[in-house]
Amino acid sequence: SHCAGCKEEIKHGQSLLALDKQWHVSCFKCQTCSVILTGEYISKDGVPYCESDYHAQF
């Protein structure tokens, strides 16, 4: 499978399933500020955001 963030193949190591896609753990980050999302996040149109950036933009 391929990472939804960087589009590279996910080989051995940690990956996560979010928004119905596979991601490298380090690629699942806020679209705006690039903080790596480990806990709470909000998505809009399949794109992840941290809570503060989501509320600031939408």
Score class of each variant (00 low, 15 high):
residue 18 A to D: 07
residue 47 V to W: 08
residue 57 Q to R: 10
residue 24 H to S: 03
residue 44 K to T: 09
residue 54 Y to F: 06
residue 56 A to R: 15
residue 14 Q to S: 10
residue 39 G to S: 09
residue 2 H to E: 06
residue 26 S to L: 09
residue 15 S to W: 06
residue 53 D to M: 01
residue 40 E to D: 13
residue 29 K to V: 05
residue 48 P to Q: 12
residue 14 Q to H: 06
residue 45 D to G: 11
residue 4 A to L: 09
residue 31 Q to D: 07
residue 52 S to Q: 09
residue 35 V to S: 11
residue 5 G to K: 13
residue 1 S to T: 08
residue 23 W to L: 02
residue 55 H to K: 12
residue 45 D to V: 04
residue 31 Q to N: 06
residue 57 Q to F: 15
residue 43 S to M: 06
residue 29 K to F: 00
residue 42 I to H: 10
residue 50 C to L: 00
residue 40 E to W: 05
residue 42 I to P: 04
residue 37 L to N: 01
residue 44 K to H: 12
residue 27 C to G: 03
residue 9 E to H: 11
residue 36 I to T: 12
residue 17 L to G: 12
residue 52 S to G: 10
residue 51 E to W: 06
residue 35 V to K: 09
residue 29 K to H: 04
residue 51 E to D: 15
residue 16 L to C: 06
residue 8 E to S: 11
residue 7 K to I: 06
residue 29 K to G: 02
residue 33 C to E: 03
residue 50 C to P: 01
residue 20 D to A: 09
residue 29 K to Y: 02
residue 37 L to V: 07
residue 53 D to F: 02
residue 38 T to K: 13
residue 45 D to P: 01
residue 53 D to I: 00
residue 58 F to C: 08
residue 27 C to D: 00
residue 54 Y to M: 04
residue 50 C to Q: 01
residue 38 T to I: 11
residue 57 Q to W: 04
residue 23 W to I: 02
residue 38 T to H: 10
residue 34 S to I: 00
residue 57 Q to Y: 09
residue 30 C to K: 01
residue 38 T to P: 07
residue 26 S to Y: 11
residue 33 C to W: 00
residue 18 A to N: 08
residue 57 Q to A: 15
residue 22 Q to F: 09
residue 51 E to G: 09
residue 4 A to P: 10
residue 9 E to D: 11
residue 44 K to V: 07
residue 57 Q to T: 07
residue 44 K to C: 03
residue 58 F to A: 08
residue 4 A to K: 14
residue 48 P to G: 06
residue 20 D to C: 05
residue 57 Q to N: 15
residue 2 H to Y: 11
residue 56 A to L: 10
residue 53 D to H: 15
residue 23 W to S: 03
residue 52 S to R: 12
residue 55 H to Q: 15
residue 1 S to V: 09
residue 9 E to M: 14
residue 28 F to R: 03
residue 27 C to F: 01
residue 35 V to C: 02
residue 3 C to L: 01
residue 44 K to R: 11
residue 44 K to W: 04
residue 32 T to H: 10
residue 3 C to E: 01
residue 5 G to V: 09
residue 6 C to A: 00
residue 27 C to Y: 00
residue 13 G to T: 07
residue 30 C to W: 00
residue 45 D to S: 07
residue 14 Q to V: 03
residue 13 G to N: 03
residue 31 Q to F: 06
residue 24 H to Y: 01
residue 20 D to F: 04
residue 39 G to V: 06
residue 58 F to W: 09
residue 35 V to I: 14
residue 53 D to K: 06
residue 13 G to D: 13
residue 47 V to C: 08
residue 58 F to M: 07
residue 52 S to D: 15
residue 12 H to C: 06
residue 28 F to E: 01
residue 46 G to C: 06
residue 32 T to P: 01
residue 33 C to D: 02
residue 48 P to V: 07
residue 47 V to N: 09
residue 18 A to I: 07
residue 52 S to W: 04
residue 50 C to E: 01
residue 13 G to A: 07
residue 50 C to A: 01
residue 22 Q to C: 12
